[in-house]
Simulated assay, not measured.
Amino acid sequence: MGTDAYQDPGDLRLFHTGAHSCGYWPERTARDLVLDPRDPRLPRWYPMALGWGFRRSGDILYRPHCAGCRACVAARIPVRRFRPSRSQRRCLARNASVQLRVQPATRTDEQLALYQRYLRARHRDGGMDTHGAAEFDQFLSGSWNDGRFLELREDGRLLAVAVTDVVESALSAVYTFYEPGMAGRGLGTLAILRQLEWARQQGHRHLYLGYWIAGHPKMEYKRRFRPLEIHDGRAWRDLEPGDTA
């Protein structure tokens, strides 16, 4: 982490990380803006930080802050206004037998095995495919957040886990992993739809989806959830059909 720290008027310390390879465009160099991970007030700041476009990874709250690039755009779904599209309704119908179980954010052997299968299939040779129990806990569970593991099961079999943080008036979709051999089931889409259902039942206003990147093959799926709100650096607004950022 770099040393160019500063304090905002609210005494909240932020840091710039050093330059590192971009996780989305490998040919680019990235930097992040990070809230002080040692600050004991992080649980209290978390809901506001999400509203500012930040994201949790492990115990770190960060926001991309790259020179000359603003491709990563924070995105969220307004729960009350969301209506599933025709293809999303088909996904729900196709997976009508899948049950949702909301579990504490405590790793099980079954979850770890699924996580490792997913990483080997989706991120082979990318660095994450060697993750074990320690990396699972560090990346997904965190030590200060209020998290849940939303399990999707069919006939008792674990198909997917949506790691979800609960904050004041919102949920944050941290990470989802699922059975890699079931791509045709649309389990990633199903996980978001079930998170939205749970958010509506709990009275939450938003489901935060992390970052949307226009034109990136791994991020364009977020555009299919409508309406989708994006953060333009100052405020949230609805994503329009022709938007590229």
Rank of each mutant, 00 (worst) to 15 (best):
R124Q: 12
V174D: 02
A96Y: 00
H216Y: 02
C66S: 10
P241S: 08
L228M: 13
T29V: 15
L100F: 00
G156T: 00
H231Y: 15
Y46A: 12
W45V: 13
R80I: 00
R41F: 02
E197F: 01
I60H: 08
G126C: 07
I192A: 12
G242Q: 12
Y115A: 06
A162F: 03
V163R: 03
V161G: 05
R89N: 04
H20E: 13
E151P: 05
R122W: 03
G10S: 09
Y178H: 11
Q99R: 15
R38K: 08
V34Q: 04
L228Y: 02
A74Y: 02
R200C: 03
G203H: 03
A173V: 04
Y46H: 15
T108W: 03
P217A: 09
F136K: 06
T17W: 14
D129V: 12
Y62K: 10
P180D: 05
L209T: 12
E197N: 04
R185I: 05
E168R: 14
E168Y: 07
A173Q: 03
G147Q: 08
C66R: 04
L100K: 01
L207G: 02
V102M: 09
R13P: 01
D32N: 14
A105V: 02
A19G: 11
A245S: 14
R80E: 15
P180T: 06
I230W: 07
A162M: 02
G132F: 03
P37S: 00
D137E: 14
Y6E: 08
A105Q: 07
Y208R: 08
L100C: 10
W45R: 12
I230Q: 05
L209N: 09
S97G: 13
Y62V: 10
Y6M: 01
P40R: 07
R63I: 04
G68C: 13
Y211I: 11
T29C: 06
R31S: 14
Y178I: 00
V79S: 09
P26C: 07
R80L: 11
R101W: 01
G132R: 10
C66L: 08
L119M: 13
V167G: 07
L140N: 04
A19S: 13
V79F: 05
C69D: 11
R153E: 00
G2D: 15
R44P: 01
I213P: 05
G51E: 12
Y62I: 07
H20G: 02
L171G: 04
R13Q: 14
T164L: 12
Y175M: 08
A19M: 11
L239R: 10
R124A: 15
L35E: 04
W198I: 08
A191P: 10
V166I: 05
P43D: 01
P217N: 07
Y211D: 08
G210V: 10
G142D: 01
R226M: 06
R122L: 04
T130L: 09
A183S: 11
L119G: 02
A49V: 05
A121M: 06
T189I: 14
